[in-house]
Design a protein around this nucleic acid. Sequence first.
DNA 1: TCCTGACATCAAAAAGTTTTCACATGTTGC
DNA 2: GCAACATGTGAAAACTTTTTGATGTCAGGA
Lengths: 237, 237
Amino acid sequence: MSDPDPHLLIVDDDERIRDLLARFLKRQGFLVSTARDAAHARRLLAGLEFDLIVLDVMMPGEDGITLTERLRGEIRTPILLLTARGETEDRIRGLEAGADDYLVKPFEPRELSLRINAILRRVPDMPAARNLPKVLHLGAVRYDIDRGELWSGDTPVRLTATEVQLMRVFSAHPGEPLSRQQLVEELGRGASGDQPGAQERAVDVQITRLRRKIEADPKQPRYLQTIRGAGYMLSPD
Amino acid sequence: MSDPDPHLLIVDDDERIRDLLARFLKRQGFLVSTARDAAHARRLLAGLEFDLIVLDVMMPGEDGITLTERLRGEIRTPILLLTARGETEDRIRGLEAGADDYLVKPFEPRELSLRINAILRRVPDMPAARNLPKVLHLGAVRYDIDRGELWSGDTPVRLTATEVQLMRVFSAHPGEPLSRQQLVEELGRGASGDQPGAQERAVDVQITRLRRKIEADPKQPRYLQTIRGAGYMLSPD
DNA sequence: TCCTGACATCAAAAAGTTTTCACATGTTGC
DNA sequence: GCAACATGTGAAAACTTTTTGATGTCAGGA
């Protein structure tokens, strides 16, 4: 976190998406450059160092997968592909061409930053890569982000699927308040037409239980705090 | 899989463990060398290329974490640490020193080979690294190993936790029959003193359900086959 | 201080998952 | 073909997890 902000290159021919992602990712603390096609991207790559490239598969001219293949011959910078829903083949060819991960459109910007962080976390510290901690310290408790495991001292604490998802989201945004609404969406609970607010109550309950697992004194949470009117925030040591 | 077998270096001061692991991993198709301490390991590393190093943390002389730190200054070869149960700090310091993963003793050898494969899968293809496929093809169905996601054409198929675990194990041992007993153990169902065989029936049921999700004709399984008297085997395309 | 809205939490209900059991079906060796 | 055994599978039971609804508590503004 004290490292310099990672530099991202977004390559997408749709200007709206490019701007949207750029603005969002800048807010997340990344340095962002954009390119509208493969040729443009190559020009930028010739002159600048990037820590990660976000690449749309569907582009006029050289497509994302071809670009991935070519780049892999030259550089090791991680590549995350954006593929269209339905183009299963693209995803596979992309990974085989050397992409590090993919995301299916349409996606939540938040999900993108989650995956970017996951990749940066496991990239061996190349020049300028932010090496995010793989383990969150919460007093006597430790959370292993990639494995989704919680350890209380020496004993593993069993987390349910939903709890792991929650921790995953919180650890991608440490020290940042996340609203119940955001959390519900991250948990992938479809925005059904239920009584409004009903679903958010479920978040409360999950938080309560999570606190019982990570807080020394759940009544007086120190790490998983309530931000009144805003939501919840995880603050690791 | 057509790449040359990956070369592993096992560093552990306990000869019994060294031999046990070496034999097991050779059977899994790895090339294995062993060293009894840090100095010995360095000598081997000076002369040979390895694809992955398995390192015991507790060793007389230079300990595993120190060695990890030093090696990280020189080479990028992935390192997997073996830590003692209870030494939480070791795990964390290990990851921070640059280890790629850890395993807590005691562990199942099978779990070790699973993790080794997971690491090799995500290592960008350095010289001689086996690049295992990240996606298994099963006819029209695809399984993304790292993400534990199953796609039938364009639609994601929801897998339960146990199903994901099963797929995880099968994909680490493609084309290899796994006994019900092994599978039960992998699923972490403690070997309770129940009626013998009862637990194994549960595997059958899980297999049946998995087949319904991955086979075009579950009655006539093509990818997840029964090996009579031996267990089950997954054979991707 | 009292009210109000936001949050915490319990217990019950609902939903989902896994295991067991019983029986059907299939396979092998004689 | 038959016996003996291995495997397949539906359905009930057992269990786990998640959501809901009710109720209590707390913080902050009037």
